[in-house]
């Protein structure tokens, strides 16, 4: 997740001595600001860019989001609590969180495998497969949903092999896991690949020269380096899977208390015009997602600190 890494990286401008104002020829019609609020830079457009950014952010993102809070106040505290802790809601949280976690875990393991294979080995079609890894990100969720539902239904391509041996995927919680694994697939792969790419071969050679076998080298030298990336990818996949709707509703059974994901429960409450109930559940779920974002930030901040510390030592 580069945004988060680079965000904490020191922007180049701060390493420079500020250009003396006098050395810069005055402009006609320029919008250069010289006040304290120019952000310590001589580049123009601070007010304009920040202003537009804040305006857009407020209008399109913040104000609509705040309506969730407003609407929840329609409920009394007791009503709010009853709604968000009702058995059906709890079952929905369990399924959403549980299936997302499992999906993320599967992606953590196999994502690492895929990243390793793509970065380390040459084989025919590697480039195409590499590009295809982003398919879950580019493919509309509804298309993914109907495709997965078709494949794993009793008469589907895979379902017809799996159901006779007792593995029912479609319309069961297992189907939810499959869909969420699909959704999160690119995240771990894409966070691990750059780390693998930048991995210093000298470290491996050193380990080999000291007598370590390949598995030992992997486990004790490389894996610790890769784990932060894997965990970042896992959290990203997890966060994405939590809110996922389109690819899940076709393959889930949508049965309350059994195979109903939280976004669907919110949708149902909306359709019943129980807006306050829908927002209450959405609020709780948002809190979980924000906590996750916070964790991502924390993880990546710590990774940067570690990396810059180790780089500083060279």
């Amino acid at each position: 997740m580069n945004t988060l890494e680079e965000r904490d990286a020191v922007p180049a401008v701060e390493n420079r001595l500020p250009v003396p104002v006098a050395a810069v020829p005055p402009k006609n019609g320029g919008s250069r600001q010289r006040s304290l609020f120019s952000g310590g830079s001589v580049l123009p457009g601070f007010g304009l860019s920040l202003g537009f950014t804040l305006l857009y952010l407020t209008l399109i993102i913040l104000i609509p989001l705040s309506t969730i809070l407003l609407k929840t106040f329609d409920l009394t505290w007791a009503g709010f609590w009853a709604t968000v802790s009702a058995p059906r809601a709890l079952a929905a949280y369990r399924l959403s969180i549980g299936a997302s976690f499992i999906g993320g875990a599967i992606n953590a393991v196999f994502g690492l495998l895929v990243a390793w294979v793509l970065e380390r080995y040459e084989f025919p079609g590697r480039r195409i497969i590499d590009a295809l890894v982003d398919l879950p990100f580019a493919l509309p969720t509804a298309v993914a949903g109907i495709a997965l539902a078709s494949i794993y239904a009793g008469n589907g391509w895979l379902g017809r092999w799996l159901e006779p041996i007792g593995i029912k995927v479609a319309y069961q919680p297992l189907g939810v896991v499959v869909a969420l694994t699909f959704i999160g697939l690119p995240f771990v792969v894409r966070t691990v690949q750059p780390v693998l790419r930048d991995f210093d071969p000298e470290v491996e050679e050193a380990a080999a020269s000291l007598g370590a076998g390949r598995w030992q080298t992997f486990r004790r030298v490389m894996l610790p380096e890769l784990l932060p990336a894997v965990s970042t990818g896992f959290v990203l996949a997890f966060a994405r899977a939590l809110g996922e709707y389109g690819s899940v509703i076709f393959i889930a059974g949508n049965m309350p208390l059994r195979s109903e994901i939280t976004p669907l429960l919110i949708m149902i409450k909306l359709e019943q015009f129980d807006y306050a109930g829908a927002t209450a559940i959405a609020l709780v779920f948002l809190a979980v997602s924000f906590a996750l974002l916070f964790v991502i930030n924390l993880l990546s901040w710590r990774r940067n600190r570690k990396l810059s510390a180790s780089e500083g030592g060279d």
Binding site: G253, N254, E260
Partner: peptide, 17 residues
């Protein structure tokens, strides 16, 4: 076990799922 939002939804649940 499950209440769909509309009659067609229930038909899908019964027939398709």
């Amino acid at each position: 076990p499950v209440l769909d939002t509309g009659a067609r939804g229930s038909t899908v649940t019964f027939v398709e799922r």
